[in-house]
Write a protein that binds this DNA or RNA. Sequence first.
DNA 1: ATCTCATGAATCC
DNA 2: TGGATTCCCTGAGA
Length: 564
Amino acid sequence: MKMPAPSRPRKRPTIIVGSVDNSSSSSSSDDEEEEEEEVEDRVDDEDEEKGKGRNGSLSRKGVGKKAPAIIISLKKVCKVCKEEGHQAGFQGANYIDCPRKPCFLCKKPGHTTMSCPHRVALEHGVVPALRKNKQTQLDYVFERQLMSQIPKIKPTFVIPDKLDRGVVKLHSRRVTSLEFHPTMNSVLLSGDKKGQIGIWDYSKPNEKTVYGSIHSCIVNNMKFDTRNDIMLYTSSSDGTISYTDLETGIGVLLMDVNPNGWNGPSTWRMLYGMDINLDKGLLLAADNFGYLYLFDTREKVKIGESILIHRKGSKVVGLHCNPTQPDLLLSCGNDHYAHIWDIRRLETQSFLASLAHGRVVNSAYFSPHTGSKILTTSQDNRIRVWDSVFGNLNLPSREIVHSHDFNRHLTPFKAEWDPKDPSESLAVIGRYISENYNGVALHPIDFIDTSTGHLVAELIDPDLTTISPVNKLHPRDDILATGSSRSVFIWRPGGLKVEDKEAERKKEIIFCNTGKKSAKEKFNESDDDDDGDDFPSKGKNKQQKKYGGKSDKAGSSKSKIVKI
DNA sequence: ATCTCATGAATCC
DNA sequence: TGGATTCCCTGAGA
């Protein structure tokens, strides 16, 4: 509980893509002014004491023209605590916390988000908690035997600092999962809340397909059959696992955990975690009541009975098989725990280790190469890292405070490893709370060095105005995919494509070495964006539907960077 | 511009 | 223990 307030390097690149129409109108400068006038004519304000006076309905985000300067009047009541004397909410593009509540970022009392030590002053910071782990003998063994496979010298992270961006709005509901094709480098799959699965070849912006009848609600997981990679396993809240041929959209129903159909929400099983264990020919999935299901992918049969692996009645949120140890399974759930299991001995409470979290665990992943680290994301606004599966797992090696706790209506945030980082350090995760980027409230996507907790880079795009809970880094290329609301974004290093020359014309890279830059500098010049894309008439086959049109943008717009 | 809704976990009684 | 109530940065459509 020491917070290392000390100065830390402010050397983070902020990657800004696209442009914003930042016609200085909403200039942050004047957000401040309070207008005491309005106070009197609010007759009812008087008796509107605590409890009643709902939302002050402040128009949010500094995007609007006339800064909706919050009226700080003693008569008004804070929408959060219902007390008089202060107001919570957006003030321009800055969100002012209710001072009577714990910090919205770190959840500790005594300060607000604005002054949270984990926020690195005016920037957008992430700070590691103190390393609490004591080294045990196992740690040393681990470090000798396994650590040696991890490069000592961490390579420079490859974060494209000059980006092209492609966007499609394939989905009619928010995107809930993303997966890159294992062999076709530019093919991205996306699943949505409605059960639709989108396929987008972003090297050919017009090649988009949406399959609408594979699932009937949330697509929670997608995994390719790497032995036959036109086939995709999907799990859904409709309670089924589907095995779908992506060329035809025709799938096989592998498993349905609601054989008796709908009997009300209290009995309806939804499948949340899913992973494939290639070595064992297993598909593992789990439901919202705490049970794990095993399926033999070769024989195409369910194996045994379901096994309770998390608190009865609580949702199992995620499953992950260890990439090097086929016997190890990691699960996480709404019971605030992640568990490590031996797949050969799966019984209730037989887990090898239990990792406690402060709240719901959104995700838990083994590291991608050695499988020896664990990265979890919890609703208590902390990313946790365990450096060694074989060490003392009682406490994480690191806790990184990061804003990703949400209030319904969003897909859970998950910190995802960069599969290309041989040092198994870099992770990407979207941020919940917005920052004031020169008068515009935007939600960045953060790149975090999980070995130190440092925010390595943050990606923002003036056109990316919605929160981006779903992110996936490409297994081979320096490419990031993002699911934000109904849109799917692809971010890739810029300047690669010859045909982008035209767009490049008025773009420039800006390096800001001093923290604060004017809006003009950051988002100088507007660009006329890309030439949207219209949908190709070529279809792949019947089952597919196409969406979009008007607001779609695909292809690329050149980008700019600001380094802070 | 304002309202409404979808929704899930935590908390309250 | 369990049903009702609450809930701080949502997003889109009416």
